[in-house]
Structures are given as structure tokens and as C-alpha cells.
């Protein structure tokens, strides 16, 4: 495996704000790599630096072995990018948008024509190729942008929220293209998304980024395993009592989120009756109880504590509960 992207202590500040804070990692050739994080985490800023649109404040990175600061054009030639915000010329047709791109990347006329036809067919826009983009739906525009990003056969493709705001069917469709492309053409793909189930299904590895920092980086499987088994969610009028009651060695983690208690443990199906019995003997009331396999959603929550941050007071009780439990 060769390294497609190498990032070393990359940092970007906007005045006082550190949008990207000293991140370092490598992305292998042919990998589909996901950047996950809440709004304002620094995902777009990271992609902007890697695509030479934004200068890093400090640190360095290479794309296909080319330094992003020393050889901007070299990097630009080898990457394709689909921006978070739309970037088509609405007054031009789908074909003309593609043609403009092909000419900018100096693709010879005959090859250009052939590839445009091929790609428009791939994203199922050949029927609409001579229509003005203004008349396109959001999904059609996105597909056109992805096709355009591939026109010059980049070896690295950046996709910034490629499916944001699209309906589930279109999203599925798009991800299928992307997965097929990565496989068939051996393109390295770096994507950001808010849809974590999609990231889970598609990405070989995922980096969770929050406040500009990488707080976790691994395969989806390892990230989910890190949770410590299955996830049991117990609703109760007295969640604190549950946290106290469940201080057992076979439970890997107990956390309170508002009126819910989230319990992580291995083989939850086998232990569920023990949990219910335990809570019954301690006379803790239960409203509902649910088991699910861990998702990236759970990973995300456990790393970023998003709901915790929403309510500071809650956060403090939670911390006390957790400490009590550990001391027990």
C-alpha cells in the first residue's frame, strides 16, 4: 500500500479561532476515508487545505507525494473535488459545464467528448445533457458535480457532504456510484458526511474530528468495538439509580444522557435478564429497555459527548455519577 495523502501537524487559524488543530494522519491509496464531525468541526477547512484552496497556518501535507504548498498546480492536476456548496454554472447545460471543466484541465477534444458522454451516462444524466442546469433538481446537480469531478481522472477525489439534503433513494444511488468508482478506477476518496450509517457502510476508515482535533481514527468496526459491546438503552424516572445499580464487572460502560441510561456490554442478549433482575431487586423503576448493536452514532456520542455539551449542568451530574460508579 502506498500513501495517497500524508498530513503532518496541519493547523489552520482564522484570527483567534483554531479551525484545524494540529492534525496528523495518512490515507492509503485506494482507500475510502471518512471525516466525521459536527458543524464547524473543521472538515471543510481540512479539505480546502488539501486541495490548495487555503494555506495552512502551520504544518504540512502531501497529496500523491506532492507538497500542497510547494506545488499547487501539481496537486490540482491530480485531485478532483466536489465542494460542499454548489459550484455549477446554472446558465450552461450539463454538457457545457462538463466541457468547460475538460477544457480547463486541458483534456484533448476527442477524449474529452468521449469521457463526457461516458460519465453523463454513468450518473444517468444523458437524457438531460443539453438542458440548462437551472432546471435540474438537487440530486441531478450533485450527480453532475460528481461526474465533473471525475472528468480529468483524478487519483484522489474529495467529496464534501456529497449527499447533503438529498432524499434517501438518491443518496443510496450516489453512494453506489462512489463505491463502484473507488473499486474500479482505484481512486482514493476522502469524504465528509453527516449521515453516519452511510459512512459506516462505505468507508474503510473514519476519522472523527471535533473542534479541529482528530479524536478517533480507525475502521468503523474497531470504532464500534471500542464502545465495549452492545448498547442497551434504559429509560427510567430515576436514571441515577440505574447508574448506581449497574456497577458490575461485566458491564463495560454506563452513561447517563438526560432521562436515559446508556449501557455498553458484551453479549447483551444473554445479560439482559440479569440486568432486569438486578434492577428489580434494587427496586429501580424501568420505563423501557432496548438493545442495539453499536453504531457510529454511539461512537460519535461517546467521543464528542454532543448531548452532554448541550446541557452543562447535566454534564456535571453525569461526571459525578460516573466517578461514583468507578469508586464503587
Amino acid at each position: 500500500m502506498t500513501v495517497a495523502i500524508h498530513i503532518e501537524n496541519l493547523t489552520r487559524r482564522f484570527n483567534d479561532l483554531v479551525a484545524v488543530d494540529n492534525i496528523s494522519f495518512d490515507i492509503e491509496h485506494g482507500e475510502i476515508f471518512g471525516l466525521l464531525g459536527p458543524n464547524g468541526a473543521g472538515k471543510t477547512t481540512t479539505l480546502s487545505m488539501l486541495s490548495t484552496m487555503l494555506k495552512p497556518t502551520s504544518g504540512s501535507a502531501t497529496v500523491n507525494g506532492i507538497d500542497i504548498e510547494r506545488d499547487e498546480d501539481g496537486v490540482r492536476k491530480s485531485i478532483g473535488i466536489v465542494f460542499q456548496d454548489q459550484s455549477l454554472d446554472e446558465e450552461l447545460t450539463a454538457w457545457e459545464n462538463m466541457d468547460f471543466h475538460g477544457r480547463l484541465y486541458r483534456i484533448p477534444a476527442d477524449i474529452r467528448k468521449q469521457r463526457i458522454t461516458e460519465l453523463l451516462r454513468l450518473v444517468e444524466l444523458e437524457d438531460r445533457q443539453h438542458d440548462i442546469v437551472k432546471t435540474f433538481s438537487g440530486g441531478m446537480r450533485r450527480r453532475l458535480e460528481i461526474a465533473r469531478g471525475l472528468l480529468h481522472h483524478p487519483s484522489v477525489l474529495f467529496l464534501d457532504e456529497p449527499t447533503l439534503g438529498l432524499d434517501p433513494q438518491t443518496r443510496n444511488h450516489l453512494w453506489q456510484y462512489i463505491a463502484t468508482l473507488a473499486r474500479e478506477k482505484g481512486i482514493t476518496i476522502i469524504l465528509t458526511t453527516h449521515y453516519m450509517d452511510e459512512a459506516d457502510r462505505l468507508c474503510n476508515r473514519i476519522a472523527i474530528i471535533d473542534h479541529g482535533k482528530i479524536i478517533a481514527l480507525d475502521t468503523p468496526k474497531n470504532l464500534k468495538d471500542g464502545i465495549g459491546g452492545d448498547v442497551v438503552t434504559i429509560r427510567s424516572p430515576d436514571p441515577a439509580a440505574i447508574v448506581a445499580a449497574l456497577a458490575e464487572p461485566w458491564i463495560s460502560r454506563v452513561e447517563q444522557h438526560n432521562d436515559e441510561v446508556i449501557v455498553s456490554l458484551k453479549n447483551a442478549e444473554q445479560h439482559i435478564s440479569t440486568i432486569v433482575t438486578l434492577l428489580n431487586t434494587k427496586q429501580v423503576p424501568i420505563e423501557s429497555i432496548a438493545i442495539h448493536k453499536p453504531t457510529l452514532e454511539d461512537v460519535f456520542l461517546s467521543f464528542t459527548g454532543k448531548t452532554i455539551r448541550e446541557e452543562e449542568a447535566d454534564h456535571k451530574t453525569n461526571m459525578r455519577m460516573y466517578q461514583k460508579m468507578v469508586r464503587h
Binding site: R76, K77, Q86, D89, Y105, R148
Partner: peptide, 13 residues
């Protein structure tokens, strides 16, 4: 404002 400038500026030209 319509984002098209990015498409032009990120090209190797």
C-alpha cells in the same frame, strides 16, 4: 456567490 468561481480557481490554471 453562486460558487462557480471555486470551480475555476481550483483548476490547474
Amino acid at each position: 456567490q453562486f460558487g462557480f468561481l471555486k470551480e475555476t480557481l481550483v483548476a490547474p490554471v
